[in-house]
Design a protein around this nucleic acid. Structure first.
Lengths: 198, 198
DNA sequence: CCCTTTATATATCAAATCAATATAAACTTC
DNA sequence: GAAGTTTATATTGATTTGATATATAAAGGG
């Protein structure tokens, strides 16, 4: 999906700066759905301005750098509704965790369990975040659809991971009395590329 | 995750051509996990050849163009295991469907239901594909982990979508006796960008 | 008191990635 | 036998990402 469409979607809810749009996809309502980075957002906003799909006002702030607050125009709303009326592409998942875990046979059992622990942490955090931003419970089913979908998926993930983790721990302690308790791996960094000259 | 690492992972299972690697991520074992396109695979294989992490033999075929079949070397296996020992990045989802559905209030109810129907079709197909490639049931839990995870997630998705679709249909037929049966949208195309000069 | 981290806020750019397209032969279907 | 699909490889242009730079300020540790 085009970064311009994603930005318009964010602005359909409320006026926002580029930074705030990013946060919507990082932590906010879109966090379970899609992702965009600054490198796409700022050029997209520039183009949207040129096309008069959005307007921009500068808000001075005490201390912090000036904010450029973008608003969607009626023409922008029309363009957005037109864009989302085309049939969407299939969902795409990118999970380094699952990719690595699919090679669990090649890794020490303790590493596999530690990896599942990290994975569990991630999905527990997402579940909590989603639960806390759940709005009115009596809202119509269209409005709660996406939130409830995310909730159902994350709950399934957490339940599955907890069960399998425990099975692996029991199995491992049966094979050898090694240390496979709730070990945590070191702090998070993106997975290393496959070497080469940096 | 680096395309080189993804290619090495594919070759850990078996020798393959660039085309076959692509299929593993499109239809095969990695389809629920990650995605890579030709534009990443072919340059990656070239680099892997230079580093002697893979070898390449040309297989002549009757009729069809020659196949370049790549094999992972012992050094390649070592490099792969090293690459996957780094802590992985968090999962990323990109769902145009959910993004569009989150604006369901702005769309005609019939369109929303048609969209959910498409979504259901997609996940039913994925579920079937995953079910058919499920291997030995007595395999150790590490080996079945990723497949079972995908199965659990897809089943949750399908169950959720079926339930919500029916709720929306009942609600819609209560509001007005409009045609909201199992309508199907036109054939699949990627979602349109937000206009501009093509 | 200094240093690091975290947060707000915008912007740029090289490197990686994707979607689309070109080529080509064989197989399929009508 | 013409047209379309599938198998297979490869390239290109456009887009996206991830990293980095700049600027300010608050918070916390040592």
């Amino acid at each position: 999906m085009d970064a311009k469409t994603l930005c318009l979607g964010a602005l359909m809810h409320d006026d926002a700066s580029g930074y705030e749009i990013r946060k919507l996809f990082e932590d906010g309502v879109f966090s379970a759905i899609h992702d965009v980075s600054f490198g796409s957002i700022y050029p997209a906003l520039t183009v949207l301005l040129e096309r008069d799909w959005v307007t921009c006002r500068v808000a001075e702030q005490d201390g912090r750098p000036d904010k450029k607050i973008y608003s969607i125009t009626p023409a922008g709303r029309a363009a957005f509704l037109d864009a989302i009326s085309s049939p969407p592409a299939p969902d795409k998942m990118r999970s380094e965790m699952l990719f690595i875990l699919s090679f669990g046979d090649y890794l020490p059992r303790a590493d596999v369990i530690a990896l599942i622990d990290r994975y569990l942490e991630e999905y527990e955090a997402r579940l909590d975040a989603l639960k806390s931003c759940t709005c009115a419970e009596d809202a119509p089913p269209v409005r709660t659809f996406v939130n409830d979908f995310g909730l159902a998926m994350y709950e399934t993930a957490v339940t599955f991971l907890r069960k399998r983790r425990d099975e692996l721990v029991i199995q491992a302690s049966g094979e050898a009395n090694s240390n496979v308790g709730p070990a945590r791996m070191s702090e998070h960094r993106p997975v290393a590329a496959v070497g080469g000259t940096p």
